[in-house]
Design a protein around this nucleic acid. Structure first.
Length: 478
RNA sequence: CGGGGCGUAGUUCAUCGGUAGAACGCCCGCUUUGGGAGCGGGAAGCAGCAGGUUCAAUUCCUGUCGCCCCGACCA
């Protein structure tokens, strides 16, 4: 029996488990420069699947794709004060090019508001040019002090949507719409439950009036900011002079939004759904949904088994299911482990037993439930099972999230929860930055958001006791 | 930038003053195939880099670079 080092148990050390899964499932590896990441085949296939689904939704929102340059003049970033203040600590700055010192340093984009809106100011002239909704798929660089695979890398891939509108109401609708799109995507495609809400003043995007977010809970009780959607107001419009003439012929500044989702989403999927055997992929984004494993032992009709496997393959492929037949000569046990590691949602086994009663043994990746299907119905049954599994994964993550969302009415309770189970805490906060800072430095928990569906109630700030009108969500973040 | 750890085969590590070894992986052959199969053969290394000590350095010392983990920053 060959010895294969198994991955660290998720419950033992989630960080080691996470790194093991990424390495063993060949999702990614570290690049030679700190904080950079090589997306290997499976890791990039996941990103492609995300892109494919999300790109359609983005276009349904009314956006069109474009591409803006990687290099931005430093002066562009400096135009919006809070923007440059927010980003300057993590900028990669190019000072030399072609062997010569550049007259003006250029930065590698940390985000593209500035370079896009410089162009917008030329593109937009009339109210007839509005709304302008542009999306770009790109990489950005933010020099991270403490990188972490997928969740926090110096270079990451994302989509960034940017829009300009005639009114603040239109801009807010856009920001709301983008967030709704992300929530739908996370829940129905990535099977990840979370809280949608508004960021606090200190947590919002540098340069935004308001920032919307979707916050996802990982198994260790820490929280992942899964996306952002900003109402930028006229902050950038002012400095980049993005103006239009309205019906009355008056010059007006546009109202803008920007919104993004990154490769961090892959990290969230790994963390939330994975188990001791490796990845568990929601069927909707699994690059491979079903693997067929013929099991050929001596004394059985190999050709008959392969024929059966081929029939199932044909039917599934005809049903647009992403299916693969693995008739390589590794042992069945090796294959079982391998595909479980890679998170393939369903596996079909065909051996002597199945050949005898003309059935297919089907095993679910997430809970190991097994089924026996006949050839006549296998297409339908597998379709059903994939959709059931998709829903079950979301339900499971929702249950987990709700179980780990607690209310704390005193700072003592708050501290207790944060040092024990962690997770989300709903607590009253006066919305004063100093109380927020105190909580953060003492408990590592920051405000994650004020939930969109949060209700207004009377309460007292858990730190200072001042009047508060609503409960905010707090958590430690990744 | 603070605290800790580590740089040796593709990977994970062992060796320890006398210039290298295991496991897994990989390649070839035969035998196998219901939870990481067996046997035989094989390829694979300027021991991160630069100095120093020494007859001799992967090993000891100094420096340097890089990476990983833990804190402050962040999608």
């Amino acid at each position: 029996m060959g010895q294969v080092k198994s991955i660290t148990k998720k419950s033992e050390d989630i960080s080691a488990w996470y790194n093991d899964v990424i390495a063993r499932a060949k999702l990614a590896e570290h690049g030679p420069v700190r904080g950079t990441m090589i997306f290997r085949l499976l890791g990039f296939a996941l990103w492609e699947a995300i892109q494919k689904t999300l790109d359609t939704k983005i276009k349904d929102l009314g956006a069109q794709n474009a591409y803006f340059p990687l290099f931005i003049p430093l002066s562009f970033l400096q135009k919006e004060q809070s923007h440059v203040k927010g980003f300057s600590p993590e900028l990669a700055v190019v000072t030399h090019g072609g062997g010569e010192k550049l007259t003006e340093p250029v930065v590698v984009r940390p985000t593209s508001e500035t370079i896009m809106y410089d162009a917008f100011s030329r593109w937009i002239e009339s109210f007839r040019d509005l709304p302008l909704v542009i999306n770009q798929w790109s990489n950005v660089v933010r020099w991270e002090k403490r990188p972490y695979m997928f969740l926090r890398t110096t270079e990451f891939l994302w989509q960034e949507g940017h829009s300009a509108h005639a009114t603040n109401e239109d801009a807010q609708k856009m920001a709301d719409g983008a967030l709704k799109m992300y929530v739908d995507f996370y829940q129905n495609t990535l099977a990840l439950y979370g809280y949608a809400g508004k960021k606090s003043e200190t947590e919002k995007f540098p340069g935004a009036d308001t920032t919307l977010t979707y916050e996802i809970l990982a198994p260790d009780g820490k929280v992942i900011q899964a996306c952002t959607s900003h109402n930028l107001g006229q902050n950038f419009a002012k400095v980049f002079k993005v103006e239009f003439q309205n019906e009355q012929g008056e010059k007006k500044l546009v109202w803008q939004t920007s919104w993004g989702l990154t490769t961090r989403s892959i990290g969230a999927v790994i963390l939330a759904h994975g188990d001791d055997n490796g990845l568990v992929l929601p069927p909707q984004i699994a690059p491979l949904q079903v693997v067929i494993i013929p099991i050929i032992s001596k004394g059985v009709d190999k050709d008959a088994i392969l024929k059966m496997a081929g029939q199932a393959f044909g039917i599934l492929e005809g049903n647009n299911i992403k299916v693969k037949m693995d008739d390589n000569d590794q042992s069945p046990g090796w294959k079982f482990n391998q595909y479980e590691l890679e998170g393939v949602p369903l596996r079909i086994e065909i051996g002597s037993t199945e050949l005898k009663d003309k059935s297919f043994r089907v095993v679910r990746r997430d809970n190991k439930d097994s089924f026996s299907f006949k050839l006549e119905t296998i297409g339908f049954e597998i379709q059903q099972l994939l959709s059931t599994m998709q829903k079950d994964l979301l339900a499971k993550h929702k249950d987990f999230t709700l179980e780990n969302t607690r209310q704390a009415d005193t700072y003592e309770d708050f501290k207790k929860i944060m040092s024990a189970t962690k997770g989300f805490i709903e607590a009253f906060w006066c919305e004063d930055a100093s109380c927020e800072e105190k909580i953060k430095s003492e408990t590592k928990a920051s405000t994650r958001c004020f939930p969109l569906d949060g209700i207004k109630v009377e309460g007292k700030c858990i730190v200072c006791g001042k009047k508060s009108t609503r409960r905010w969500l707090f958590a430690q973040s990744y």
